[in-house]
Amino acid sequence: MKFGCIILTLAAAACTLPANGGSEANACATNTQLEQSVAGLAQAKLCIFSGAKKRSFTVEIARNSMEQAKGLMFRTELADDTGMIFPFPEPKIASFWMKNTVIPLDIIFIRENGTIESIAENTVPYSTEPVSSGEPVASVLELRGGLTSELGIAAGDKVVWQSK
Rank of each mutant, 00 (worst) to 15 (best):
T32R: 11
R75N: 08
A52K: 15
S65K: 08
A19T: 06
G145Q: 04
T82A: 14
R75E: 12
Q36T: 09
G22I: 10
M1K: 15
F49Q: 11
R63G: 03
T76L: 15
T58F: 03
I153L: 08
L41K: 07
P91N: 05
S133D: 11
E112I: 10
F49N: 05
G156D: 08
L141T: 12
L17W: 02
E135H: 11
V124T: 13
A42R: 15
A62R: 08
K54E: 04
Q33I: 10
N31V: 04
I85C: 03
T76A: 14
E60Y: 09
P125S: 02
E77G: 06
I107Y: 09
V131W: 11
E67H: 04
N64K: 06
Q68P: 06
R75S: 10
A120G: 01
F109C: 05
D106K: 09
A25F: 08
V59F: 05
D106N: 07
A25D: 04
W161I: 07
Y126P: 01
C15H: 12
P136T: 15
R63E: 13
S139T: 02
G21L: 07
P130C: 02
V131M: 10
I110G: 02
V124C: 02
F109L: 07
G83S: 13
T115W: 00
V140L: 15
N20G: 14
E77M: 09
F109D: 05
N100H: 10
K2R: 12
A52G: 00
P87S: 06
Q33C: 04
V140H: 12
S127K: 07
L8C: 14
T9I: 12
G40C: 04
A39M: 13
P136S: 06
T76F: 14
E150K: 15
S139I: 01
E142S: 04
L143Q: 08
I85Q: 04
E150L: 14
V137W: 02
A29E: 07
A79W: 02
K70F: 04
A94W: 00
R111H: 05
E77Q: 13
E121V: 01
L143R: 09
G145I: 02
L46E: 06
E117T: 03
G51W: 12
N20R: 12
S56E: 15
T9S: 10
G4Y: 11
E135F: 00
G114A: 11
Q162F: 06
G40E: 04
G146A: 06
I93E: 12
G51E: 10
T9G: 13
E142R: 11
W161Q: 06
C15Y: 11
G71E: 03
C15N: 07
V137A: 03
V59E: 09
V137S: 01
F57R: 05
A79D: 13
R111W: 01
E142T: 05
A52T: 09
F96T: 01
F88I: 03
Q162W: 01
E150R: 15
L105C: 07
I116D: 02
E35P: 12
W161D: 01
P89I: 08
L34E: 00
T32Q: 14
V160D: 00
A11Y: 09
N100Q: 12
G145A: 04
E150H: 13
M73H: 06
L34T: 01
Q162E: 14
E67Y: 03
T101L: 12
D80A: 14
E24T: 04
N26Y: 12
F49W: 14
A94S: 13
N31G: 15
T82Q: 15
K92W: 03
